[in-house]
Amino acid sequence: MESSSSGRVELPAAFEEAHIDHLVLLIADMLNRLMTHNDRIPLSPESLTRFHSRSAPNISVLDYLKRIVRFTNVEKSCLLITLHYIDQICARTPIFTLSSLTCHRFIIAAITVSSKGLCDSFCTNHLYAKVGGISVTELNILEREFLATIDWRLMCTREVLQEYYINLVRTHSTGQFVIAGADSSPSNSSDSDIDMESGQSRPPSPEIPTRPQPGTIPQEVAQRATVEQNMAFAALQQSEDFKGRKGRDG
C-alpha cells in the first residue's frame, strides 16, 4: 500500500492482499451511505424484523466492525460477503432495509454464519454474541433467521467478492482510495458501471435503476437501496460529475 502524490492511497488489485483495516473502512463507508438512505423511510409495524433494535446502538458501524475484527480475527472474505448477503436478503425479503436499527445485528449474524460456512476455524456463538453486544440466545435466533432468509446460500464466487471490493474502492465517498496500477479516471469506469447495473455476475436487485439523473436519488433507491444500487448510483454520479467538469474546462 502506497500513498500517491495526490494524497490518494493505493490499494492492491486483489482483495486478498488488501489490509483488513482498509477493507473495514471501505465497507463501513458503504454501509453508512446505505443507512443514510434507508433511515429516511418511515418505520411501519409490518416492516419490523428480527434484526430491528429498539433504538440505534451507540457504537458506530466503523467501530463495530473494528471490534469484530479485533476480537474474532474474522477473515477478509467474511467481511466482503456481508455485502452479498445484504443484496440477497433485500431481493428475497422486500420489507427488509439495512438501517441504523438493523445494521449492527445484521453484521454480527452475517459474520457468525459466514465464518462457519467459509472458514476452517471460527469462534463460538458465545464469543460472537459477547463481541456483538447481544445475548447468546438472541444470536442463536438471529442465526436461524438469517440462514432461513438467505435459503442457506452461504457461498459465492471469488469473482463476486472481488467485484464488491473494486467497486467499494471506486465509489468511496472521499475518493481517497485507488487500485494500484489502475486508471482511476471516472470516465473509464463505464464498463464496470454496466456490470453493476445489469448484475451480470450475480442476480440483480429487482428495483435497481438504469439511468438515474445525476445529483438526485431515485425514489425507488431511497425506498429500498441495496449495496449494489448504491455502488451503481455512486459510480454513475461520479462519471457524470467528471464529464460535466471536463465540458466546462474544455
Rank of each mutant, 00 (worst) to 15 (best):
Phe15Gln: 09
Cys90Asn: 09
Met231Glu: 15
Arg67Asp: 14
Val227Pro: 04
Phe242Ala: 15
Cys103Thr: 15
Ile108Phe: 04
Phe146Cys: 15
Ser6Trp: 03
Ser185Val: 05
Ala222Ile: 10
Ile111Thr: 06
Leu65Ile: 10
Arg158Met: 05
Thr82Arg: 06
Ile107Asn: 06
Cys103His: 08
Ala225Gln: 09
Ser205Lys: 02
Leu236Pro: 00
Thr124Ile: 02
Ala234Phe: 04
Phe242Arg: 14
Gln238Phe: 01
Ser185Ala: 11
Leu34Ser: 11
Pro12Ser: 13
Gly215Met: 12
Leu43Gln: 14
Leu25Ile: 03
Asp249Trp: 02
Ala91His: 08
Val74Met: 05
Gly199Leu: 13
Gly247Gln: 10
Ser53Pro: 05
Gln219Ser: 05
Asp39His: 04
Gly181Lys: 07
Phe122Ser: 13
Thr216Gln: 11
Ile81His: 02
Ile217Asn: 12
Ala180Gln: 11
Thr82Tyr: 00
Arg245Trp: 03
Met30Cys: 10
Thr137Tyr: 03
Asp191Asn: 09
Arg158Asn: 15
Ala180Phe: 00
Pro12His: 07
Ala235His: 02
Gln238Leu: 12
His104Asn: 10
Asp241Phe: 01
Arg40Lys: 11
Arg144Gln: 12
Leu147Pro: 04
Glu207Gln: 10
Ala109Pro: 08
Ile107Glu: 09
Pro214Gly: 05
Arg144Trp: 00
Glu143Ala: 07
Ile81Tyr: 00
Met231Arg: 04
Ser47Tyr: 00
Phe233Asn: 15
Asp195Tyr: 01
Thr124Gln: 10
Leu80Cys: 09
Trp152Glu: 15
Thr124Gly: 14
Ser5Arg: 04
Leu118Met: 14
Asp191Arg: 11
Met196Thr: 07
Gln237Ile: 00
Thr157Trp: 01
Phe242Ser: 14
Gln237Phe: 00
Arg202Cys: 09
Tyr165Ser: 11
Ala110Met: 07
Leu168Asp: 14
Tyr64Gln: 05
Arg105Asn: 11
Gln88His: 07
Arg144His: 04
Ala148His: 02
Pro94His: 07
Asp193Met: 09
Leu168Ala: 12
Leu236Gln: 11
Gly7Lys: 06
Ile86Gly: 02
Asp249Phe: 00
Thr171Gly: 06
Lys246Leu: 06
Ser44Tyr: 01
Ser239Thr: 05
Arg40Trp: 00
Ala14Pro: 00
Thr112Phe: 07
Glu10Cys: 14
Ser173Met: 02
Tyr64Cys: 03
Asp29Thr: 11
Asp195Cys: 08
His37Lys: 11
Glu145Gln: 11
